[in-house]
Design a binder for these strands. Structure first.
Lengths: 336, 336
DNA sequence: TATATTTATGCAATCGTTCTCGGAATTACT
DNA sequence: AGTAATTCCGAGAACGATTGCATAAATATA
C-alpha cells in the first residue's frame, strides 16, 4: 500500500532529528545553510510532501473552504464556482462544493458536514427553502468565517456580495415597458429570498416609474425556485389563464426562465401570441433559443472571485473582523 | 474562537480516562453499561463530535473521495456529480470536486492535490488534452483506488464505466442516414480520448452498414473539446466550405454541439439549408432550441452512481481487488 | 481463606507535524 | 585563560483520537 515519506524518515536517513528537518524545510533561521541544503536535497530526491492532515491537526486549519449552493447544474453557480476556484487554488486552498438542491434540510446537513470537517470558512448562497439561518448564525458566532453571495442572509452580520438585483430587475421590466408591454407579470422564486425581494422591488419600481398599476394577480412565486417543473407550470398557466392575460413576463431566475419556456413549448402558438419574456439568466445558450429571451446576466465569475477574496481575508485576518462589507455588482441586460 | 469539545474534555468532566471515553462512545464490549450510559449522555449534552482530522490521521483514511472532471458547467458532468453525491453522502463520504477545464496540466495538479490531501479514492474523467496517464497510473500502483467514468484510460487496469458510445454514435448516424442524408460529417473532441475513438467507430460503422463511403475530409477534431469556440468555429467552417458540402453533421460532444449551433447562428439561413445535426448532449434545454438537435443522451446520473458504488467497493474492500469491471451503459436517442 | 478468573478501567504509544525549551559546541570578548 | 555571546540542533510536548497492554477490583472457584 501507499506509504508516503515522513519527516521521521528523512531524519533517520540523515541522522538528524525531526525538529531539525521540519525547521530546515520551513527555512527557519536557526538552521545552518549546510544542513538546510542537505535536507532540502534529500527531501526533493525522495519527493517528500508534508502530510496535510497532520498539519491540519497541528495548526487547526485545513486550508479548505466549503461552498454551499443550490446546484452546480446551474449556469450562474457553475460560473461562480469557477471564480471561486480561480482565487482559492491560487492561494493554496481547496474548495469543497456541496449542493442543497434548494432544500433547507440539506443545507443544514451540508453546513454541519463542512463545519465538522473543519473547513476554514464558508461561502454560502441560501437555498430557496431556507427561512431560518440559525444554523449558520451559530457557526458564525463561534468564529467560523462566512461570506454570503447571491442569496444572502440579511440577519447575519458578515461580508456579503450580490448582484444589483433591484436595478437589474428594473432594467428588464423597463425594457418590456419600453417595448410596448403594459400587462407585465412577475414570476419569482420563493418570496423570502433576498434576491426575490430585491427583484420584486425593481419590478414594482419600474411599473411605478412608468405609471403602471401593480396587479397582485400578476405576481407568482415558486417556493422551490423552479426545482419542480410542476410548480413552475402551475404558476405560468395560472398567469396565462387570467381573464386579463399578461402580455409579458419578467422572470426572476435562471431555472425559472427555462421552466417557463418549457411550459411555452407545450402551448399553441396563438396562446403565446405577443407574449414577451425577460428574465435573469446566465446561460450562454440563450442566443440559440427558439423563443427570444431578454436576459439579465449577473457577473457570476467575478462574484465568485470577490466572495472568495473576502472570505480568505476573513480567514487570514489576525484579529477578529467587525466591519463588514456589503458589495453590490451591476448586472447586464441582453436584449433579445 | 471556535473550540469544539474533545475526548479529553469529557474524560476530565466525568473523572475518566480518554481511553474509556473513546471506548464507551464506540460501544466496546469491555465498558460497563453504567459508564457507557454516563459518557453517552454527557457527550450528547455537550454535543460532542469526534474531530475528523484526528481520526483521519489515526486511521489513515479521510472518508472523502476526489472527483476530476473537465468542468461542472457541463450538463453531463453536473448530472453525473449528482449521482456521485447521492451515493457518497449516503455512505458518509465527502466529495471533493475539481475541474481540469480540459487541461492536462490542471489534471495533474488536481490529481496531486487530491492525493496529497489524502482522499480515499478518485473518480476520474480524463481531460481532452490528456494523452499520458502516468500520473494516475503511479497513484494506482501505490494502491489508491481509482474508477474512471465516461472518458476512461484504457491502459490503466481498474474499474471503468462508460456509455455505449459506439452504439449511441451508430444510432445517431443511422438516424441521419435514414432521414435521407448521405454526406454526413463528424465533429469530435480530441482524437485520442476513449469517447472520441468509440464514437468515431460508431459513426464509421453506420456509414459502412449503409454502404456510404467514408470521406476523411468530413472528420474534424477539436483538441480542446470545444473549450475554445474559435477551434469549433474553424472546424465547422472548414466543413461548410468543402466543395462537397456535408448535408449533416454528427457531433460527438455536448459542448461541441452547442459550439456548432453557435456557429450556425452566425450564418445565413441558406448556408444552413437542409443541414441536419445530431449529437451527444445531456442538456435539458434542447427542446427549446431554434435549431432542432437530435441528441444522444447518456445516463449521467446513473453513471455517477455506479462509478461511486464501484469506487467505494474498492475502498472498503479488505483485500486488494484484482478483477476489474468495465461497465457499459446504453445511451438514448432523442429525435428532433 | 487462598487462588484463579473475569470485568472494568487506565497508561502510554501512535499517526505526522510544529514549536517551546534547553543545551551543546563554537566563536567573541575581557 | 575564563567568561559571555552566538549559532545550531535535539528532546519532548503538544494536536485529538484509537488501541494493545497492564492492572486494580470484583467475582468465582477450590
Amino acid at each position: 500500500m501507499f506509504e508516503p515519506a515522513t519527516l521521521k524518515d528523512i531524519a533517520i536517513a540523515l541522522g538528524l532529528s525531526t525538529s531539525t528537518v521540519s525547521r530546515a524545510l520551513r527555512d527557519t533561521y536557526e538552521i545552518s545553510p549546510k544542513t538546510k541544503k542537505l535536507v532540502l536535497e534529500y527531501a526533493e530526491k525522495i519527493n517528500y510532501r508534508p502530510n496535510p492532515i497532520a498539519q491540519s491537526l497541528k495548526e487547526r486549519r485545513t486550508k479548505s473552504i466549503g461552498v454551499i449552493v443550490s446546484e452546480v447544474a446551474n449556469q450562474y453557480f457553475s460560473q461562480a464556482i469557477n471564480g471561486i476556484e480561480s482565487i482559492a487554488y491560487d492561494k493554496g486552498y481547496h474548495v469543497i462544493i456541496t449542493q442543497t438542491h434548494e432544500s433547507y434540510e440539506r443545507e443544514m446537513i451540508n453546513t454541519q458536514h463542512l463545519a465538522s470537517r473543519g473547513v476554514d470558512g464558508l461561502l454560502v448562497s441560501l437555498s430557496a427553502e431556507t427561512k431560518d439561518t440559525s444554523h449558520l448564525q451559530a457557526l458564525h458566532d463561534k468564529g467560523l468565517p462566512i461570506v454570503f453571495f447571491d442569496r444572502v442572509a440579511k440577519e447575519i452580520d458578515t461580508h456579503k456580495i450580490s448582484a444589483n438585483n433591484e436595478r437589474g430587475a428594473f432594467e428588464a421590466t423597463a425594457h418590456l415597458i419600453n417595448a410596448g408591454y403594459r400587462k407585465i407579470a412577475h414570476l419569482s422564486s420563493s418570496a423570502h429570498l433576498s434576491i426575490s425581494i430585491e427583484r420584486l422591488r425593481g419590478y414594482t419600481a419600474a411599473l411605478n416609474q412608468y405609471g403602471i398599476a401593480l396587479n397582485p394577480d400578476y405576481i407568482k412565486n415558486c417556493p422551490h425556485g423552479g426545482m419542480f417543473q410542476e410548480e413552475t407550470e402551475k404558476a405560468v398557466l395560472e398567469l396565462l389563464n387570467l381573464k386579463e392575460k399578461p402580455d409579458a413576463i419578467f422572470v426572476a431566475g435562471d431555472r425559472l426562465s427555462m421552466g417557463c419556456l418549457t411550459v411555452f413549448k407545450g402551448l399553441s402558438a396563438d396562446a403565446l401570441d405577443e407574449l414577451a419574456i425577460a428574465g435573469f439568466s446566465n446561460s450562454d445558450m440563450l442566443d440559440l433559443l427558439k423563443y427570444p429571451l431578454t436576459s439579465v446576466r449577473q457577473p457570476a465569475f467575478e462574484m465568485g472571485q470577490i466572495a472568495t477574496t473576502m472570505l480568505l481575508q476573513l480567514i487570514e485576518s489576525k484579529r477578529p473582523v467587525t466591519e463588514f462589507e456589503n458589495k453590490v455588482i451591476d448586472t447586464k441586460l441582453f436584449i433579445r
